[in-house]
Simulated assay, not measured.
Amino acid sequence: MKSFSSYLYEQYEKRKSRNPQYSRRAFARDLGVSSGRLADYLSGESLPNSQTLEKLFQALNVSPSDQDAIFEKLKKQKYLSRGQGFTKQLSEEEFRQVSNWKCWSLLTLFRSFDFSPETEWLSKKTGLPESEILTHLKNLETIGLIKKTADGYILTDKSITTSNDVPSSAIREAHRQFLNRAQSALENVPIEQRDMTSITMCIAPKNVSRAKEIIAEFRVRLSELLEHEQPTEVYNLNVCLFPVFHGGSDEKN
């Protein structure tokens, strides 16, 4: 399946071949979007949210099988291009090798303004023994996230993401570990160095997909703010949105 913009452009060309007078303005009208928004979709500058995508599917009379293929392609495009521009998406197996919170945090530390590739510096910064740091560095090197040079290890990809909205035991375990670290921080980190709040709402479930999109946009905007200038400390943000009465045990995922 081609990119969403390519697919949309092909649909426009098909209509234009049947009617040479058919314009992009007419195409936008038939799709129910503005001309400017259509231009963004065709150029790849913008990607439709799930609600707009359903409207486009109806206007284009897209078959269910093609809808599934387009949705999967679009989902990957979103998370490889949104905000900072992710350059690499890890597979389940790749992420499993580096999903330990210590390993992932060590990788993030490479972005520190005062970063030094020596294991002695990394040990002092993280409090981890050098032997454990070497193990994590090896795992990161194995899947190509860092590489060893004459001057030490360096990053190979600066913006990395995992699969999204796909069941993954490795991702669940990583979330679990970071949530445990959050519990520890609640007791051990001064309040001026952390922020932990929650809100319990009665919601319309149909809006959850849009809420997830807003949360994703918020994460990108917040990371752009916090990683600006001269970052030196590794922080973790967890935004949890879930039904309180879901019927599951507190001991399970």
Rank of each mutant, 00 (worst) to 15 (best):
Q51S: 07
V166E: 14
T142S: 10
L107I: 00
M196K: 07
R24Q: 15
Q51R: 10
E217S: 10
N164M: 07
K206S: 13
V33S: 04
F110S: 04
T142N: 09
I214W: 06
K212Q: 05
L8M: 08
W121Y: 11
R176S: 13
C202L: 14
D114S: 12
N139H: 05
A39D: 14
T197W: 00
D68A: 14
L109F: 13
A216S: 12
Q230M: 13
A216Y: 04
L106A: 03
I146K: 01
E192Y: 13
S168Q: 03
E45Y: 03
S65N: 09
N253Q: 11
V189I: 12
S169W: 02
M1I: 08
F242I: 01
T135E: 14
I146R: 00
Y235V: 09
S17A: 15
E251N: 08
E92G: 00
E93T: 04
N238R: 00
D40N: 13
L237M: 12
K212H: 01
S46A: 14
S209Y: 03
G32V: 06
D165E: 15
T156L: 12
L90S: 01
A28C: 05
Y7H: 05
L122G: 02
V239Q: 00
E227M: 13
F218L: 10
I199L: 11
N238L: 08
N180E: 15
A174W: 11
E130Y: 02
Y41M: 02
D157C: 11
Y153C: 07
Y9I: 12
K124F: 04
E187V: 10
Q177D: 07
